[in-house]
Amino acid sequence: MNRKEKFAEVVLTVVGLTSVAVLALIIFFIFREGAPFFAEVGLGSFIGGTKWSPGKGQFGVLPMIAGSFFVTLGALVIGVPLGLGCALYLSEFAPKRTAAILKPLIEILAGIPSVVFGFIGLTVIVPLIRDRLGGPGFSVLASALVLGIMILPTMVSISYDALRAVPQVYREGMLAVGANRWQAVTSVVLPAARSGILAAGILSMGRAVGETMAVIMVAGNATIIPGSVLDPVRTLTSNIALEMGYAAGLHRQALFATGVVLFVIIGALNIVARSFVRNRVR
């Protein structure tokens, strides 16, 4: 009996370490593959370089960093207000039955494969932009629209949880002194849920930075720093996915180095988000 008990404990402890082990392996392999590149080309000319043409041995990743930045920013401008509005409606104003139907519906958005989002962008949004606003259609704007929709489920469900976590007495306290529901929400509920909403925004940002397939299909993927929202753009993730299939030697190492940059950005975002969530718990 006791041996079975010990066995279960040992097995579960080992199993519990899988995710840590996988994380360690990922970090080790990506960094090991990217590190020689930094040694050879130098961090400065990689991060600061504006020209990416592997054929000529030019590996400047700045256009992609800028691309990821603009596309993500655009996605946040679209997705954060829309998602927060949804969360507010669901948690504060919607009748119970409506919320019970809408919330799972919005979560279904999270289940739609990213290639499908990309395809809708390709067949609907890109032609629309080309015809109405000019330019090639494949653009920062198209990517931001697609990503803005894709981050909605994250934004909605995490801010919804944050809003729901605000004690009911806060609302009742405001209503009792004659405020209406909107006033109660804007003056008490939103401020009380602020760190949770911030965490939702940061996690959505992580989603947007990390998304690959949908962006490839609508961004145009030119290795230039975009001058307007209608210009084509290439993100860090697309850079890896587009060229990984045929890259070799230094070129391949450069792609893993791109992965390292992406990894560091995501890691920093996660650490910031975690500190917000933790503050909220305390």
Partner: peptide, 20 residues
């Protein structure tokens, strides 16, 4: 540590998993 591992894993973009 275990929780940090799982949460960090959750934030990693799928393309990085692909590379790994």
């Amino acid at each position: 540590i275990v929780r940090f591992g799982t949460e960090s894993l959750a934030g990693i973009p799928s393309i990085i998993f692909g590379l790994f």
